[in-house]
Simulated assay, not measured.
Amino acid sequence: MNDTIVAGLLGLLEGLTEFLPVSSTGHVLLAGHFLGFESSGKAFEVVIQLGAIFAIVGVYARLLFNTFRAAPHDPQARRFILSVLIAFLPAVVVGVLAHDIIKRVLFETPMLIAVMLILGGIVLLLVDRWKLEVHYDDASHLPLSTAFKIGVIQCLAMIPGTSRSGATIVGAMLMGVSKRAAAEFSFFLSMPTMAGAFAYDLYKNRDVLSADDLNLIVIGFVFAFVSAVFVVRGLLDFVSRHGYALFGWWRIIIGSVVILALVQGY
């Protein structure tokens, strides 16, 4: 299949799955494996996440603008910004230290990705069924210590197939955050996390990317942006009504199908 078409399909897949607890990177890597798509330094799979970042910024543009405008004179606005930055810090440390292992080993192991999809799906099903006590129903009012713990848990998502949003959502819910607020905090935390991953990965791969690579990245970016907008707008209402069980089953099914395909030599 033509690389341009594949780039568009992978960008679409990235945008559709980035904010769902199903592991967008895992889906994109597995799809690329079976479609025979190879990107220089595996940069495409990380850098196209910028499209999803732009989508979340666009959807929350008014809230973000009002929060930063109020920050100089509103302690609560400053505290919310600080909570997101504190949650972001663990990913900075682990991401920089483990970058080469993540890209050269974990990204190149489809079987590991499939297993993590299944394990993460089981965790989602269990947590969704538990009657967890809710202490926080507003993503902007989380204690700083809780935000930091969510950030530590987010680092698990550096293993592809785990899911950044899945890890942060489950971690937040286990700490007493409501389903909707957990998803919303995951949205906000994704902005610095994904922007940082984009910038660092682009820097690390600056010597191996060609003009053709950049063209494919732009195509993936556009498709990721458009599809992510639709997901962000509908996800909060969906999880408030239906929880996360659907995503748990999806992970288990996809992971199982991939394992069967890999065992058959595909």
Rank of each mutant, 00 (worst) to 15 (best):
S210D: 12
L156Q: 00
F34H: 05
H242C: 07
A211Y: 07
S24V: 02
G15W: 01
F223D: 00
R180Q: 15
A114E: 01
F68N: 01
E38L: 01
F185L: 06
S227P: 11
E133D: 07
M116G: 00
M111A: 15
L124T: 01
V57G: 01
L82Q: 11
M111W: 14
L20Y: 07
F187I: 07
L89F: 15
R78F: 12
T4M: 13
A70C: 05
A245K: 07
N215E: 11
G171N: 10
A77S: 09
A167D: 06
I118S: 03
A71V: 05
F247D: 01
V208Y: 09
G8H: 00
R164E: 05
V218L: 15
L50S: 07
A183H: 01
L262R: 11
Q76A: 14
A228D: 03
L174P: 02
E18V: 02
A211G: 04
L262H: 09
A157L: 04
H73M: 08
Q49K: 03
I102R: 03
A197I: 06
P72K: 10
M173T: 00
T67A: 09
V57Y: 00
V263H: 12
F37T: 00
P160T: 07
P75Q: 05
I101R: 14
I150H: 11
L117T: 03
I102Q: 03
S178D: 08
R62E: 11
A228N: 12
E45D: 13
V226Q: 02
L189K: 08
V115N: 00
I56T: 02
T168Y: 05
L10N: 05
D138H: 14
M191C: 09
L144K: 13
G220N: 04
I5P: 00
T4L: 13
D212F: 10
Q264T: 04
M111T: 14
L126R: 06
F34D: 06
F221R: 00
Y266I: 14
G166E: 09
S178A: 06
L216F: 09
I113D: 01
L16S: 02
L262T: 05
R233N: 13
A70S: 11
A183I: 03
R104C: 03
I81H: 08
I86K: 06
G196I: 01
M173Y: 11
D3K: 12
H135F: 13
L214R: 04
V226T: 07
S190Q: 04
S163D: 08
E45S: 11
N66D: 14
A261G: 06
I53D: 05
G248P: 03
K204Y: 08
G51Y: 12
G166A: 12
L29T: 03
L82K: 13
F247K: 08
W249Y: 15
I217P: 04
F148Q: 06
A43L: 01
K149P: 00
L235F: 14
G121M: 08
L156Y: 00
A157T: 02
P160C: 09
V123N: 02
R62G: 07
N66T: 05
L260G: 07
R241G: 00
I122D: 02
W249V: 13
G15R: 02
D74V: 04
R164S: 11
K42T: 04
F68I: 12
L97Q: 04
A147M: 08
P90E: 11
